[in-house]
Design a protein around this nucleic acid. Structure first.
Lengths: 348, 348
DNA sequence: TTGAAAGCGCTACCAG
DNA sequence: CTGGTAGCGCTTTCAA
């Protein structure tokens, strides 16, 4: 930069201004600086030096609570990431991926990342990373919660949505079973009856269990008899395995599933067991993926793309606050009852 | 750092060494530095300052020749990204996503990114970015090519693989049509007969067209009559549309498709048109995705995960050179002929 | 094994 | 609108 300034016959400050606040320098100076820069092959301020001096990085960190491999394979995570990427495009911001595998040095790497803020996907209540993120002083928004002091979060009202979809599915049935997302960052498949939400540290999983339970209570279904199978990965094949396991146990007539992927697997399992949907079994999903629509799966619609975009825009200072996240119930064939009319409710 | 040095009663250099070359300082000094750091809440060298001084960033840039949205949705890109992510884990390196939409400032953003090297996914012959990447002086590896002086690249021998799979599919058929990936970074769907590879600037698409053509020539099929439909997105729905279009035009008995996604769409289209596979139509895919195996699709197997990992490891200086990329033909039901035996060839 | 000096390239701050 | 000064936090280089 000093060389450019010398060649243009101006001070380094004029060169700096030319790149950072072009309106502040006269067009004559600007042109001379540009010419000198072009002549010398100078392509603009060095980013590391700029970061050191200004404390800004022009990039956003995305914390994934798992291997990036999973994040890239999980359709929900992908839609959320796409939304973040979209916001980054608007702001000319780089996107830094930061896996959080709960290994020794993950916390340090995330803390030391050269980013201006964080968007977090998938974390759990009590994750020590949350306090670390607060300490960075950088704006942070967590998808799905938890609501941690000093951090922003974005999610639909999972509890209300879970109650709504369970109520719809159970309008004329009485024996639900639940296929849940993982309860915590460990990956173990377990099955319990009358699941206690307070033992669940993944906030999304917890809220949905609470909502399903709310519906059961209101409909007079004994929660303590309702089996919940916690899965380890949000994958179709695992949904099939989970469903098979639940079929063995019970006279289940309704499967409340926390993702479309898992629900589609459950539908696969029902088909291969000769169980007719919806005559003998109702199934609900979550997220309204294209595949869910194609399969006639009743599901909770939400836009993870919009949530990603909104979270990132807030982190980047492009908006005042995170937008409220909308959801709706898409009632389709998988929960149909004869003579039942299709309805659609939009709620915030 | 100066504060820590003062508190520990040592020089800043001892503090720096403690973090960067712990073996170089005495354990007594090290302990005092650690204690002082813990006391003052110092968590290690500032990354921006370290980058400015040392020129290293501990991160790798991934250049995606499209919107990140597409990259996250494209199964092939995802597997490649997963491999890169895996290598980053080994090296404790951050992953910076850099979309290249061929907009004005994309080149500058990629050049100025604070990364130690680049892995490039999807680019085309003559992309001006290639020279920019050479000028950065940073190690760069491109998936699929082109082979550009000063840059490394990794790919299977697409031409040979295309010839092999086309030869397998056409062993007892004579009327192929091709469903191709996009020919250049523009996104337009076109259909041509006797496609001229030299007009195609995406190297992967070009090599595969050449290979298909090689097979046709060897089998005595008049290339000038063979229709090629160039798609715009690697998506199942688009494969279905493409196949429908090709069905209208011709007495096609073989569909050579450049991806499993597109091929599965073609299978969908055949099913809805009542065209039996393999009796009336043979179909081949590319990449051997799980869905391809499930659908009995003959395809080219390659590990994009391994290629991503290998490319990233080379860029990070963890390996001497990029590994050779292996491929094989998986012959399945979609190209079956009566009494034909299944074979599998592994080639490098 | 430790330390002093120098400066990476830039921008905040203040002055003109 | 322009410029001088100072220093961001660290590591390279050289010396002890």
């Amino acid at each position: 930069m000093a060389d450019v300034a010398a060649a243009a016959g101006v001070s380094t400050m004029s060169v700096s201004y030319t790149y950072n606040q072009p309106s502040r320098v006269s067009s004559a100076t600007r042109d001379r600086v540009r010419a000198a820069a072009a002549h010398l092959g100078y392509t603009g301020p060095n980013r590391a030096a700029r970061s050191l001096r200004s404390g800004k990085h022009n990039s956003i960190g995305v914390v994934l609570g798992e291997k990036l491999t999973y994040a890239f394979e999980d359709p929900q995570a992908r839609r959320f990431l796409s939304g973040i990427a979209d916001a980054c495009l608007d702001a000319d911001t780089a996107l830094v991926m930061l896996p959080n595998l709960h290994r020794d040095n993950d916390t340090a790497r995330i803390r030391d990342a050269q980013v201006d803020g964080y968007v977090v996907w998938t974390t759990e209540i009590g994750d020590p990373l949350l306090d670390v993120l607060v300490d960075t002083g950088r704006p942070t928004c967590i998808q799905g919660g938890p609501d941690h002091p000093g951090l922003e979060w974005i999610a639909i009202d999972d509890r209300a949505a879970a109650e709504a979809i369970a109520t719809a599915a159970l309008s004329s049935r009485a024996h639900p079973a639940i296929v849940a997302l993982r309860p915590d960052s460990r990956r173990e498949s377990t099955i319990v009856r009358g699941a206690d939400a307070s033992n669940i540290s993944m906030p999304v999983t917890r809220a949905r269990i609470e909502g399903y339970r709310d519906a059961c209570l209101r409909l007079g279904i004994d929660w303590s008899t309702v089996p919940t199978l916690f899965t380890t990965h949000n994958a179709r094949a695992e949904g099939a395995v989970a469903a098979q396991q639940l079929f063995q146990d019970d006279v289940v007539d309704t499967l409340l599933v926390m993702s479309d992927e898992l629900a589609l697997g459950a539908i696969d399992a029902a088909a291969s067991s000769g169980i007719d949907i919806p005559a003998r079994l109702a199934v609900t999903g979550w997220d309204d993926s294209p595949a869910a629509a194609a399969a006639g799966l009743t599901t909770v619609a939400q836009s993870l793309f919009d949530q990603g975009r909104s979270a990132a825009r807030w982190v980047l200072g492009l908006s005042e606050g995170v937008d409220a996240a909308a959801w709706s119930i898409e009632e389709r064939k998988s929960t149909e009852v004869e003579n039942r009319t299709q309805t659609e409710d939009i709620m915030i």
